[in-house]
Design a protein around this nucleic acid. Structure first.
Length: 476
DNA sequence: TGAAATGTTGGGGCG
DNA sequence: ACGCCCCAACATTTC
């Protein structure tokens, strides 16, 4: 029997894991998660992600143990750790699922050649993305910068590989020492956070799969209409599982395709959902082509955009104290649950950038820290999209009106009431613009604007004009 | 995967 | 019957 090291990064699952399957077939399996702080590329794991990672490793460790192999946790420089483990286990092969972050891909390529020079067999498998970002190109051979043709190219590309089952059994190796997960202190910075996150999420591979099945059996049929409604549980909420790999996009792709083939579901809804999965692919495609995506606006003129410096406004946004209920509800949902509904993400992002004129990178950094689904490629591409400086972006002048967005997508104010409880007693007619409510209505609802709930930190019309003027200033 | 400003049309009230 | 105004409803343009 020959031993194989399986390096886990983001594909933290047993099913549809080709690296793990390769190792299992080959002989003994040594599953390893290496915490290499030198590989953070200047960006440490966000707070919510630390919590999710800890839960993921716990769950996957248990699942691996049940199959017969114990997960080894190590901290240190990757090559050194791998060489040490090779020596201890006699492993003759190392395998992992491919990483796409441009700088990590370079590191992995170096690791591969270093190990090969040691005489080790190295196998790298796909898993995180459906389509190889380097292979999808426009007719002219350039990277896609527009979503629609990109998605069309996906549908005519060679189909993604079909998901495979988890190995039946794993043959482990005893006596390899591992760090204790608790010693890694993968905890967010506030003590209360893990509790609220744990109340919102059950982090396991099994849950991810069940969530997908439930979604396909239920709300995917109404996805087209409900996906924009934060007051309705109309989305799959798979994003964090997809980021950490409790589920693979391949599993989603084929499960949805199967449901479509069986029929009986609203086909517009199914297509819409698949397109959302492809937005994730598109984002990573962009990130692979433009490694500076998280830092640098794709549209060069935005390099001279007159962003304001206003720590108080930033803080008000982060805490959900802007005085605009739909914005505050979103920011508080984020803080409490590590997740925010997609429609509201667009609204709060537009508000930060356009109403407050704060740099989209400030928002990106906050999302990175607080989202359990924080994903560098998706986060960067999406913030640039809202800011109007990204690929196929919403034009900058598309400024969301928070009152209209609230009325349109949270018509009864149920979403606002849930996350902004100080407004819960207010007549729904005024819930998205409490400053317009008659005084007696406010009194009846126990609201004193400026005391129990803030007045708007900026006036909508004034802010809108200011944003348009700022845009004009960078033109030509 | 906007919103606001501006333009156009057509019905109805009314002198 | 006619012109005029008002204005909602819709369309187009502009930001």
């Amino acid at each position: 029997m020959t031993a194989t090291l399986v390096l886990f990064h983001q594909n933290l699952r047993l099913a549809d894991n080709r690296a793990l399957a390769f190792a299992a077939e080959r002989g003994s399996v040594v599953p390893v998660y290496i915490r290499d702080d030198g590989q953070m590329a200047g960006r440490a794991l966000g707070g919510a992600s630390r919590w999710w990672l800890r839960e993921s490793l716990k769950d996957m460790g248990e699942n691996l143990h049940k199959k017969g192999a114990d997960l080894i946790l190590r901290r240190g420089e990757t090559l050194a750790v791998v060489r040490d483990l090779i020596q201890q286990t006699g492993a003759t092969a190392v395998t992992w699922n491919r990483r796409y972050e441009p700088d990590l891909a370079i590191r992995d390529a170096k690791l591969k050649s270093a190990l090969q020079a040691d005489g080790i067999d190295v196998q790298i498998y796909e898993g995180f993305l459906l389509f190889d970002p380097t292979s999808l190109r426009t007719g002219g051979g350039t990277p896609f910068k527009v979503f629609t043709p990109f998605s069309k190219a996906c549908f005519v590309a060679p189909p993604p590989s079909k998901p495979i089952a988890a190995p039946q059994h794993l043959k482990g190796i005893d006596g390899i020492c591992s760090d204790a997960l608790d010693d890694w202190k993968l905890v967010p910075r506030t003590a209360a956070w893990p509790k609220t996150l744990a109340a919102a999420w059950d982090v396991s591979e099994q849950t991810a799969w069940k969530r997908l099945q439930d979604f396909i059996a239920g709300s995917i049929d109404r996805y087209h209409g409900d996906r924009d409604r934060p007051d309705i549980d109309g989305t799959s909420r798979l994003s964090p599982y997809l980021h950490f790999g409790q589920i693979s996009p391949h599993q989603i792709w084929y499960a949805v395709q199967k449901a479509a083939a069986i029929g009986g579901k609203n086909s517009t809804s199914i297509e819409r959902y698949v397109l959302e999965i492809l937005w994730r692919e598109f984002s990573w495609n962009l990130f692979c082509q433009f490694p500076a995506l998280p830092e640098k606006p794709l549209v060069a003129s935005f390099g001279r955009f007159p962003w304001r410096d206003d720590p108080d406004a930033l803080k008000a946004w982060q805490k959900g104290l802007t005085g605009y209920p739909i914005v505050d509800a979103g920011m508080r949902q984020l803080w409490q649950t590590g997740w925010m509904h997609n429609r509201v993400r667009m609204v709060v992002a537009s508000f930060l950038i356009k109403h407050l004129l704060l740099d989209w990178r400030e928002g990106e950094a906050w999302f990175w820290d607080t989202l359990v689904d924080a994903d560098i490629g998706v986060n960067a591409a999406s913030w640039q999209w809202v800011a109007g400086c990204g690929a196929d972006a919403a034009p900058f002048f598309r400024i969301f009106n928070p009152m209209l967005q609230g009325k349109k997508f949270d018509p009864q104010g149920e979403y606002v009431k849930l996350y902004v409880p100080e407004l819960a007693q207010l007549d729904p007619a005024y819930i998205h613009e409490p400053w317009r409510a008659p005084l007696d209505q406010l009194r009846k609802a126990g609201i004193k604007l400026g005391a129990t709930y803030p007045l708007p930190i900026v006036d909508h019309n004034t802010a809108r004009q200011r944003a348009l003027a700022a845009l004009a200033s960078i033109k030509a």
